[in-house]
Design a protein around this nucleic acid. Sequence first.
DNA 1: GACCTGCTGCGGGCTG
Length: 888
Amino acid sequence: MRLQTSTGYKIIADWLANKGLHPFTFQEETWQHIINGKSGLVNAPTGCGKTFSVFLGAVIDFINKHPGNWQSKAGNGLQLLWITPLRALAKDIGRAMEAVIGELNMQWKIGIRNGDTDMSERQRQKRKMPEVLIITPESLHLLLAQKGYPAVFEHLQILAVDEWHELIGSKRGVQVELAVSKLVALRTPIVNRESAIGNSSLRVWGISATIGNLDQAQDVLLSPVYNISPVTGELRGETGVIVKANIRKDIVIESIIPDEIEKYPWAGHLGLKLIHKVLPILNTSRTTLIFINTRGMSEQWYQALLTAAPDLAGAIALHHGSIEQELRIWVEEALHTGKLKAVVCTASLDLGVDFRPVETVIQVGSPKGVARFLQRAGRSGHSPGDVSKIWFLPTHSLELVEAAALKSAVEETFIESREPMVLCFDVLIQYLSTLAISDGFKPDEIFEEVRSTFCYRDMTHIEWTAILEFITSGGNALAQYDEYKKVEVIDDVYRINSRRIAMRHRMHIGTIVSEAMMKVKFVSGGFIGVIEEWFITRLSPGDVFTLAGRQLELVTIKDMTALVRKSNAKKSIVPSWQGGRMPLSANLGKKLRQKFEEARNLTSGAVSREAEVRNTKPEGRNKKSGKPKINSGDRLTATHSPLTIHHSPDIELQVLNPLFQLQEQLSHVPGANELLIEHIETKDGYHLFVYPFEGRLVHEAMAAILAWRISKITPITFSFAMNDYGFELLSDQPIPVDDTNVYDLFTADNLLTDIQRSANATEMAKRKFRDIAVIGGLIFQGYPGEQKKARHLQSSASLLFNVFSEYEPGNLLLRQSYQEVFDQQMEEVRLRNMLERVRGSKIIITFPRQLTPFCFPIKVDSMRENLTSEKLEDRVRRMQQYLNSPSP
DNA sequence: GACCTGCTGCGGGCTG
C-alpha cells in the first residue's frame, strides 16, 4: 500500500493544502512511520513543526482505523498520551491541538493533567479519559499510583515525549523511561514477548532538539519498545527511526565589543560596564530577551537598566524562577502582546515561548554551552525562514573569546551530548512504591520490565533483591524501624496497604528536590516570590532587599513566610540563591582552546619571540626547593606550530590582540594541543595557575588531586581557587612542579584512588545523599504548605547517611550517592579525558614576573571572600592599571 | 550545611 492512498493521509494533506501548506512542513515522513507501526524520534529546530508532525500522525492513524466514522467517533478512551516537562507548555500545545481538532470537526477531547489540574477535572478524567492527554512525567506516575490504572491505557495508541532532550540527562528522564516500560508492557506483556513478532503495539515517539548523542537518545527512550531478549540480549523487534527535518536555521551572532578593550575589566561576572551598548539594541528592536546567568545578577541588571534609562520604566520586566508564578505569567503575556519592550530573565525563559516569538536576544556572560546558546538564539526569529539574532555581551575581556568559539561551534553544529543516567536506585524505589500503592506488583514481572529500560538494563539480580528487601523490611540498617517497612508481600504480590503511607507517597512523587524556600509576601497581601531560608535568616527586620525588581523591607517572619513592605531605601541587599553550578561544557572548552591557538597565531606576528623561546631545560635547578632558577619571563619548553591562518580571524580575537600580546609577553598563549602552567610569586605567596578549560567542576577535582600528588613529593599545604578556564594552587612555599615531574602529576593512572584520598568524597556524598533519600522516600518533607525546615531535612539525611555507613556500607543508596559525586560533582569521565588529552599534549611551564591576563579572573575570584564588592572593584582597577603599564 | 556568581523543572484523592 502506498502511503498517499491512505484515507487519513489524504484528508490531512488536503486540509493542509487548503491552508496553503505543504505536508512537508510537518515532516510527513513521521506520519508514514506512525501509520506503519514504527516508533522513533523526531529531530528539528524549534518552529519547524515537529510537534505537529507527531500529533497529525496520531490523527491520521485514528482516521485510518475508523475510516467511515472518524468524525463522529469518540469515547474510545485515551488514544494519545503527550508527555511534556513543563506545565506551561501544556496549555499552548493543548490550544494548538484543539484548533486542529476543531477545524477537522473531530470529536476528540484534549485534556491536561498536571499539578494545576483541578479536582473536578481530575474526576471527569477518571470517569472518562479524553482522547488526548497532555501530562508531566510526575503526573503520569501519579496515574500509575491509581487503582485499576491499566484500564486507563487500554486503548492507548501513541505515547509522545516532547522536549526529550530536556529530560534525558536527568532523573525525570528515568521516570519517563520507567513509565514507557510500564505502558509498553501493558500492551505487550514481557512474558509474551519471546513469541511476539516485531514491536509493541504501542508506538513511542520522542521529540527532540539537536543534541550530540541523538542516536543514543532514541535508544534510551525506545529501549522497552525494542523487545530485547532479557536472556540473550538479542534484539527481537525492530529498532526505531529518526526523522530529521532538513531545515537549517540561520543564526546571526554578534558580539558587543567594548570601545576600549584596554580599559574593560579583566575579571567580573556582571558586565554592567557595557550597559550603554545594550540600550540602543533595545530601542531598535520591538521585543528583546536579555539572558542573565543568575537570579541575583538578573535583579541587578533590571535595576541598572532602569537607572540608565528611566524612560524604560513600565516597558521592561524581570523574570526568573524565584518570582511568584502569577507575576511571571503576566510578564510572559505582556511580552507577547507587545506591552513590554524587553525582559531580563534567567534560564526560566529558555523554554516555553515557542508559540510567541521575540525579535532579539542578548546573552550576558558565558552561556556555558553551545546547546544552551543555540536554544536561546532560537527564541528569536522563530518562524521558518526567519533569521535568529543573538548578541553576546562579555562580562570580562577574556570572555569575548567565547563569542568566537560559539560562532564556530554553531557553524559546525558541535552540540553537547546529554548523558542518560544509569542505575538510579532512588527513582526505582519510588517507582516500586508507586506500583505498590495502586495494584501491587509481582517482582518477576516487574524485574523484566524494569530491565527493559536503558537505565536499569545492567541491574543485577542481587541488586534487585536488595531493593525488594529494602522496601519490605528497611534492609539491614533500618530493620528495627517500622516506618521503613512500607511494602507487604501477600501471595507474591507486593503492596502498600497503609493509607497513610500511600498518601505520603503520592505527595512525594517526583525527582526534583529543592532548597528550603521561604515565601515573600506583602503585609498588605500579595505574594512576590521565594527566597532561600538561609538568606532570609541572615536578615533582621528593617533590612532592605531586592526581589522581582522591587525594594522590600523585611517586617517579620511568620509561618515560614517573610512579610515585607515597599521601601525607597537607596541601598538594598541582592539575594543570592543556591543554584546549580553549570560548568563550561566540554564542547565549548574545546572550541575555546582552538580559538586561543588562533589568537596566538595572530599575535605572534607582532611579538618578537626569538629571545623567549627555549627548547632546552634551564640549568641550575635547585633540587631542594624544586624551584628552577631561571629568570622570570623565561619558559621551560616552548615550541610553536608554524604560523597558519586558514581563514580571516574573528573580530573578537582581533579586538583582544593587545591582551594576547601582553599574555604572550608575560607568559604564553596556549595552543589547542598545549596545557599552560604559570608559576607566579606575589606577596601572597607562590601561585600555580593551570588552564585546562574544562569547567569549574573538573578544575575543582583536579586542583585537589594535584595538591595531593604534590604533597607526596614534599609536605606542603595549599589553598585553591578555580573558574571555568583554570585553577590556582596557592602556597607559602615554592611549588615543586617542573618539567621533570609535570607529566607524572597529570597522569590518569591511579586516578580513582587519588580522587578518594584527595577530595572529601564522604562530605560530598553526604550532600548528594540528601536528595537521594528524599526521592527514595526515606525522608518525609512535610505536607504541602508546611515544609519542614532545611535544618531538619539535612539532619535526618545525615543521620541516615551515618547509619548506613556504619551498619550497611553496601547499601545501594549509599553507593549511589558516591557514584553521583564521581559522575556529577567531579565529572570523572571528563576529568579522565582531560588527563588523557594532557598526556598527548605539550605542557608549557612559564614563570611570569607578574599576574597575567589569564590568571587574573581566577585570582580576583579567590580574593572575593575577604572583600566587599566596592573594595574589590577598587583593588581590581588598581591591579589592572598597574598591569597595563608594566614596568620592568 | 555553607553560601565563593551560580539555572530550570514537579507534586493527594480515598470512599462515600
